[in-house]
Design a protein around this nucleic acid. Structure first.
Lengths: 229, 229
DNA sequence: CCAAAAGTGTTTCACTTACACCCATGA
DNA sequence: TCATGGGTGTAAGTGAAACACTTTTGG
């Protein structure tokens, strides 16, 4: 058994796949690199960890620094550590994925004239490093997660209609759902608080607004309830 | 954007939770530390990564070096990077979990007079570092995974009886299953190859042996089949 | 012949699925 | 009054859960 200092150390970074929902489209936040390697290429936001912060803290800090988004949900995704994933040095990256409420972010504001932009998740430019693989992993994880944990709500505004919720699932799962069955199922779970409000400024009958009831979810979960779509 | 060498680097290790099934009991492989910190304490097998190997390669190498087990399954678990998880230095550890066929390992041989031993997963000694938390995470993951992926077979010998298989699920999931329903469900999946062999040396009616059909599983999976217990 | 585990079928109930029409509203 | 999406009920089918007895074999 050797002592620590005898071992060469890799760089450690965090990279985060930030998902947002923009009018029914799933988007990903990317940053255009200023420096080599891959100068000019789009990449996931991220950077080197500091010695006095946890991995998750590092992810949050980098996102705030680079893009100013406020995260609704953040979860560790996977750690990528292939030897040659960075051409300059050995770099291990701990990838996270995050969900944000784009409705609260003036999403288009971020993209003007800056090097930060939202891209459709299904149609991103060529990415730096192995970030395409990280994105792919994140998409798969989101798809799986959304089915058995109520994380989808983190993509919606606080108050939403059932149609918005259904569209969200259809977008993420990439298949159509039956309206009647979807509503029956979701309402029966008893996790949606029916509000005395309706959506505004629509050119047809306005839909009722709902809110996800976190306390009730926590309560039911303790009793063995299993969320599943 | 700064250059790499401006950043201090943490140590990076891999630690692996190795699960084995010993006569119906779920066991975990532990190693007794020879050096400080935590000299004398039991810990998960692991160690520092080399600059020329991937994370998974590092996990495999360390396991071979320290315990000589042959892995049936290896999957990345989670990366632990709290600032103070190692009292000496900043150490980020990428945790893996592994499944081995204990029947093929003469499990008790490893424990005599060495500092490597199998402990019941539900009853381990106080562990070094944050390894208790890593173990807990691994248990939760195994429990979740075993339900929707046929990884449980990696804990059994190549040929097994349906009762062995059921006991395995009962052990990992920590609840009893109905024999008739379990058999119906598993057999209906069509993933078990019924062999013309029976178990040997039992003092009662000998049970039929089965083998997990990997090719068929791969084939069905492509067609949209979903394994689920 | 007894102990021990292997092996098997049926009913009930809940949930999923498929499916089509009327309603409310703003333009 | 019309276009647009909001909102609802029912029947059929599928799968899960509950449940007990007979069979085989070795000792």
């Amino acid at each position: 058994m050797k002592y620590y200092y005898e071992y060469p150390r890799p760089c450690v970074t965090v990279d985060t796949v930030v998902f947002g929902l923009d009018e029914g489209d799933l988007k990903v936040l990317l940053i255009q690199r200023a420096q080599d390697p891959f100068a000019g290429r789009w990449a996931l936001p991220g950077g080197f960890i500091h010695m006095d912060e946890s991995l998750e803290d590092a992810a949050r800090r980098e996102l705030e620094e680079e893009s100013g988004v406020k995260l609704a949900y953040l979860e560790q995704l996977y750690t990528f550590g292939n030897v040659k994933r960075d051409p300059r040095d050995r770099v291990v990256t701990v990838a996270y994925y995050a969900l944000v409420k784009l409705s609260a972010h003036a999403p288009h504001a971020a993209s003007d004239a800056s090097n930060v932009a939202w891209f459709p998740a299904a149609d991103v430019p060529t990415l730096a490093f192995d970030h395409a693989k990280i994105l792919e992993t994140a998409m798969a994880r989101l798809q799986a997660k959304v089915r058995y944990q109520p994380v989808g709500f983190e993509l919606l505004p606080e108050k939403f209609t059932l149609t918005q919720l259904q569209k969200l699932y259809e977008t993420v799962l990439e298949r159509l759902l039956d309206k009647r069955n979807f509503r029956k199922k979701l309402l029966k779970m008893g996790l949606l608080e029916e509000l005395d409000e309706i959506e505004q400024d629509v050119a047809h009958r306005a839909a009722r607004l709902y809110r996800f009831d976190r306390k009730r979810y926590a309560h039911l979960t303790k009793k063995g309830f299993n969320f599943e779509i």
